[in-house]
Nucleic acid binder design. Structure first.
Length: 704
RNA sequence: GCGCGGUUAGCUCAGUUGGUAGAGCGCGUCAUUGACGUUGACGAUGUCGGGGGUUCGAAUCCCUCACCGCGCACCA
């Protein structure tokens, strides 16, 4: 016994303890719900949002893992068949971008590389990162079932993703279409709307003389082929012009013939109420051209350079060409005036900020309307999940009602290949080649096409035992930045394939910022690594700092002072334990409690009830704060102090009662704290004189 | 343009269904070789953004104004 207490005489050594405890947990097998002790009938499942396997974990992942781990440990202790299923995402475009930067540093480029070789290189890179990412997850104390881990490129996952595509094709929910797509000319791929960001810029707005009209544009470089002039049919200023009228005018590179088109898409209030159209490089113009069966011509190539239609400007990049074109227009006296303060919203690639060039391309699209309708119907039937914070539900529904068809094909190698085959004009969707003469679509899926099916894929949809046991999952806890990218797609696929919303509760956490609540970014140099923090303060301290006082949705200022405070707290628990063990040597843990001690026992029971309620309602931040205050301000500061005279006194019955109480309170306290600070509480539990199970992790949650 | 959030102590933020203002860090005074290198006690600083309303009672509910921040958006 004496030896046992020795370790408590030194400060708590989390650096040595935490990895040792994690290993012991892993070896116990208890991360796997199949191995949990007792008769567990009720399942509780959480699917981990698979981190991108292209780097180390960042602070946001720290919060991500912590919140879910708190919940799963709580449920496990409550006697549930608790599954926390980990995974990793190949993260298509994101990883390809990371790898391309690396190639750039080495003076190489993906362009001109053999696609197979590029794929192999990125594959090796990803596997390496996946390993370190898993180590990071473990370092945080995440109690997930590694035996069930899934990777988005596991063969059975890939097959299922492709099967979904084939099924959707059969159901008419995906189609091959020539449409305007968001084209990034640096990365040479199309992007979905959520992969672009809209940035407001002040750009000169040019009013140009177009025959008898004045038209406006911020993009003179696209105007070479404009041969249709469009106005609203009700615009009284232009009643003398009829649909189909033609007239000649002098344009940038010489005389052209223009045709009048009347279309209600034109805003009479804007500018002169007259516009020319560039269908190949503008969504709205494309739609007008489609309605009227107009010609469309490409002006800018996929590299962002002007085509021969630009005449002397052929081959120039936009940025270079624009001022020269304006100069020429001025010389030809075609510039009426310039508004230098015009504010314009432009789309940029969310990874490289290159201006998105709308291009008309053949791509695969998901027809969203019938799918979002499934979700809206489910809401109306009141089947939709609870969402925290509440306002995110409104945001999600707004997205559902306004989403446009989803471009799912990417012109990159790093991803799941699209099971579509071409032979001349014929198109087929099937996993195997339809036969001689068919070539497979070289494109890959948008990474959200696979991760959107994640709850189904990880559980072995459609007919595995796990799927039957754990679907729908209980909690989807993820970052608020995924409210459009990921969550709605999982709901859609869940309803479409499994006819059930894939989770009962969504919890969105905010972003982890620096101590001043400013976004962490490499350029600001304020990025902190969660792994470094675990080395300095311990994973337990980091976990507490991340959750105390941070409700769903709110951003989290992460200061080292706060983490340090919880490092001190871990040590406080250590010393509480030392005091209790030293003063209960040989005591009877079941001695009868006197009235005063029964009252103190009742107090901790009441706390347990409160925590249970808070955790069940996912008010994790409140539960963490309450148990912290109990341990420090009540148990250590008051109860232990009051105990000193009793333990030193001559009233043997009072002493025995107090000793039993202290053992009981210590046990209850480490149980209540375990979901939040799993390591130090487990280490303490291992030194308690009487344990009912081999690990605190599988102890029963206090209930009174 | 449409939508959403915030405004509480020096700093960063909590405050669950309305019931005499809280945490962490920081600050001040005193104590302490202590179960605690990482301790304890006590304390200071707040007209809870402005104004109005509901209520016995509002940081909390409603209206309005101001200021910050965020998301979405095909007005050329």
């Amino acid at each position: 016994m004496e030896e046992k207490h020795e370790k408590f005489k030194k400060p708590y050594d989390f650096v040595a303890t935490e990895p040792r405890i994690y290993e012991a947990w892993e070896q116990s097998g208890y991360f796997n719900p199949d191995n949990l002790p007792g008769d567990r009938t009720e399942a509780f499942s959480i699917i981990m949002p698979p981190p991108n396997a292209n780097g180390r974990l960042h602070a946001g992942h720290g919060l991500d893992m912590t919140l879910k781990d708190i919940v799963i440990r709580f449920k496990r202790m409550q006697g549930k068949k608790a599954l926390f299923l980990p995974g990793a995402d190949h993260a298509g475009f994101e990883t390809q971008v990371v790898y391309e930067k690396r190639l750039e540093k080495e003076g190489r480029s993906r362009f001109g590389m053999d696609p197979k070789q590029l794929y192999e290189e990125i594959y090796a890179f990803t596997l390496e990162n996946k390993k370190s990412m898993e180590d990071d997850i473990k370092r945080l104390g995440t109690s997930c079932d590694w035996s069930r881990e899934k990777f988005t490129l596991d063969p059975e996952i890939v097959t299922q993703v492709q099967q979904t595509f084939v099924k959707m094709h059969e159901d008419g929910l995906v189609y091959r279409g020539k449409r305007t797509v968001n084209w990034c000319s640096k990365h040479q791929t199309s992007l979905s709307d959520v992969e672009t960001e809209s940035v407001e810029e002040t750009t000169p707005f040019y009013y140009l003389k177009y025959g008898p009209f004045t038209i406006g544009t911020v993009r003179p470089e696209t105007k070479f082929g404009d041969k249709y002039v469009v106005m609203h049919p009700d615009d009284k200023r232009y009643t003398s012009y009829k649909q189909g009228d033609t007239f000649d005018l002098e344009w940038i590179n010489g005389p052209i013939t223009a045709t009048v088109i009347k279309d209600e898409a034109v805003d009479m209030e804007f500018g002169t109420g007259v516009m020319t159209i560039t269908p190949w490089h503008s969504q709205i113009d494309y739609e007008i051209a489609q309605r009227h069966g107009l010609d469309m011509e490409q002006i800018i190539d996929l590299r962002g350079k002007l085509l021969p239609i630009a005449g002397e400007f052929e081959g120039m990049k936009i940025a270079e060409a624009r001022p020269k074109i304006v100069e020429k227009l001025k010389e030809k006296e075609l510039v009426v005036r310039v508004d230098e303060n015009y504010k314009n919203v432009v789309k940029r690639c969310y990874k490289c900020s290159t201006m998105i060039e709308p291009q008309v391309k053949d791509q695969w699209f998901v027809s969203m309307e019938p799918l979002t309708q499934l979700v809206i119907d489910a809401v109306e039937r009141d089947e939709l999940i609870g969402i925290l914070p509440d306002y995110e539900k409104k945001i999600l529904l707004h997205w559902m009602k306004n989403s446009i068809d989803w471009n799912i094909s990417r012109q990159i190698v790093w991803g799941i290949s699209i099971p579509a085959w071409f032979k001349g004009e014929e198109i087929r969707a099937s996993i195997e080649s339809p036969g001689e003469g068919w070539t497979q679509d070289p494109d890959t899926f948008d990474t959200w096409f696979s991760s959107g099916q994640w709850p189904l894929l990880t559980l072995g949809y459609p007919d595995s035992d796990d799927f039957k046991t754990y679907y729908p999952t209980d909690l989807m806890e993820t970052g608020a930045d995924l409210v459009f990218k990921w969550v709605p797609r999982m709901i859609i696929f869940g309803l479409y394939l499994a006819k059930q919303v894939p989770f009962k509760q969504v919890y969105f956490h905010g972003m982890v910022n620096d101590a001043q609540n400013k976004k962490m970014s490499k350029s600001k140099g304020n990025v902190v690594s969660p792994i470094d923090l675990t080395q300095t303060y311990g994973a337990d301290a980091l976990r507490m700092a991340l959750v105390v006082g941070t409700p769903a949705g709110s951003n989290i200022p992460l200061s080292e002072d706060k983490i340090k405070g919880y490092k001190h707290f871990a040590n406080k628990l250590w010393n509480i334990t030392r005091f209790v063990l030293e003063n209960t040597e040989g005591a009877d843990a079941n001695a009868p409690l006197n009235d005063a001690d029964l009252a103190l026992k009742a107090e901790v029971d009441a706390l347990a009830r409160e925590l249970t309620e808070n955790l069940e309602q996912y008010r994790i931040y409140l539960a963490a704060e309450k148990v912290y205050h109990y341990a420090w301000d009540r148990f250590a500061a008051v109860i232990l102090e009051e105990s000193k005279p009793i333990l030193a006194g001559s009233d043997a019955a009072a002493k025995a009662s107090r000793q039993a109480l202290l053992l009981s309170l210590l046990t209850t306290t480490v149980k209540l704290l375990h979901p939040f600070m799993p390591f130090v509480t487990e280490e303490i539990y291992q030194s308690l004189p009487s344990k009912s199970v081999d690990f605190l992790m599988v102890e029963s949650w206090p209930h009174a």
